[in-house]
Every structure is written in C-alpha cells, then in structure tokens.
Amino acid sequence: MLIPYESLLRLPTSTVDNLIREYLLSQVEDGSFNELNDKAIQAATEKCRQALKKGELIVEYSEDDESVAIRSREQIIQRTPLSED
C-alpha cells in the first residue's frame, strides 16, 4: 500500500526523519551514497524530503511483513504488474 505524501505531514517529524535515515543508510550500503558526514547527511535528508514531496520517492507499507520503506517511483512501477483487460 502506498502512503500519500499528505499523510506523512500528519506524522511526527521524528518518525519521518527515521524513515529517511533508514532509506539513506540503504543507499550507503548499496554504494549510491558516497559521503557519510553530518553536512552530507543533512543535505541528503533535505533532498529526500523534496523527492517525497514531488513524488519521486514514495513511502510504501508492506502488509506481508508489516514494514514501511521509502522506494523510488521506478522501483514501484517495475514491481507492479500491468493489468490485462
């Protein structure tokens, strides 16, 4: 289930910050994120917030394993099967 950006605005800031941190840490692990200093993390956090606002990144709740994660729009589109009419 995809969580609309407007719903994120109703969550405590710390909850959204934790989601963003988890997403950024996954970027470090896969090599997409080069630096790990405070300034770089702060800039990446703001960039992530803007991407969420623009819909480039989306928060997804998985009912199967009851987890929440930030994913790129492309990841979600690739995983979504096209319906055949």
Rank of each mutant, 00 (worst) to 15 (best):
G55K: 04
S67M: 12
T15Q: 12
E74P: 01
T45A: 06
D30N: 07
L52E: 07
G55S: 06
R73G: 07
I3Y: 02
L2E: 13
V59P: 00
E22Y: 11
L24E: 00
Y61Q: 08
F33A: 00
S62D: 14
P12T: 03
A43G: 02
S83R: 01
L2I: 15
K39L: 13
Q42N: 15
G31Q: 03
E63V: 13
S62P: 12
R10Y: 11
T15F: 01
F33P: 02
E84N: 08
I70G: 04
N34T: 05
I77H: 06
Q78L: 12
N37M: 04
T13H: 14
R79H: 07
R21N: 14
L9G: 01
D17Y: 00
L9R: 11
L19G: 11
V59L: 11
N37L: 06
M1P: 09
I58W: 08
T45S: 10
P4V: 00
T80S: 08
I76L: 14
C48H: 00
I70T: 04
E6C: 00
A51H: 09
P12R: 02
E60A: 08
V28W: 01
A69I: 00
L36V: 06
L9F: 02
N37S: 06
Y5W: 07
R79N: 13
T45P: 03
L24V: 01
D65Q: 03
L19T: 12
Y23R: 01
Q50V: 15
S83A: 05
P81F: 04
S26R: 02
V68L: 09
G55E: 08
R73Q: 06
G31C: 10
S7E: 15
L9M: 04
V16D: 14
D17P: 01
C48N: 03
L25P: 03
S26C: 02
D65Y: 02
D64H: 10
I3C: 09
D38R: 09
P4C: 07
M1Y: 09
P4H: 11
T15Y: 01
V28S: 01
R79S: 15
R21P: 00
E22K: 09
D65G: 08
E74D: 13
E60P: 01
E6Q: 10
T80F: 11
D38V: 13
I70W: 07
S7W: 15
D38T: 08
Q42Y: 09
L19E: 15
I41Q: 03
D64E: 14
I41W: 03
D17G: 06
C48E: 05
N18D: 15
R73D: 06
E35Y: 05
G31T: 10
V59D: 01
A43Y: 07
L57P: 03
G55F: 04
I20W: 10
I58Y: 03
E84W: 09
L82N: 12
L82F: 12
D85I: 09
S32P: 05
E22W: 09
A44G: 06
R49N: 05
S7I: 13
R10P: 01
S83Y: 10
L2W: 07
A51C: 08
S67P: 08
L8Y: 04
T45R: 04
L11D: 13
D64T: 12
Q42A: 15
V68C: 15
V16S: 13
K39R: 11
S72N: 12
F33Y: 10
N18E: 14
S14I: 14
S14T: 10
Q42P: 09
